[in-house]
Design a protein around this nucleic acid. Sequence first.
DNA 1: GTACAGATTGAG
DNA 2: TCAATCTGTACT
Length: 199
Amino acid sequence: MEKIALLVGKRLEREFYQKPTIKVSKELLGKYLVRKINKKLLIGRIVETEAYIGPQDKAAHSFNWRISKRNIIEYAQGGYIYIYLVYGMYWQLNIVTSSAGRPECVLIRALEPITEEKDIRIASGPGKLCKWLKLDSSFYAKDLSQSRDIWVAEPPKAYAKIDKRQIVAAKRIGIDYAKEWKDKLWRFYLKSSPAVSKK
DNA sequence: GTACAGATTGAG
DNA sequence: TCAATCTGTACT
């Protein structure tokens, strides 16, 4: 409360994430990702997401019910963090969605910094945002509805409204191997944001 | 055990 | 256009 309420609104509850993955992917746009490091807050507005809907989605790690030490958290109920390393050097922040037993998630692809930053594009990509917020394997399986150092919040009232016409649906990035699934319009971003990736 | 490609990025 | 860098996955 107090001062923090001027910056961010209420934390999203577990139920928010337990809806269909496409719906959650769109509704996350405009929400604030809050990260607390040594009592300091880093806040980014979510401006780009991607839906991964295993086991039918060939681009998903959970395709064909694949399950491993890496992706097992995808099988939990919505609201947990699924984070993994790609290309040997970049962490990718995902949020588990839907209900237990359905291995689906949303990749958070870009943030627009709300707290003061020199570079508006400091988090304009999935690898970049994890670097900015210092996210790594230690965040694996954290509960966003409970954790004290990372959560998603409603924006302050004045910024709460997202015009549906601002939301663009596009093909997902970096999954050309996924046959017909690569053409699904499961990437969502806010048209006017300067922080969307690949600009 | 070994090979190989990947939900990316920034430099040239 | 390309290398960095390392783990999961699919084979031998």
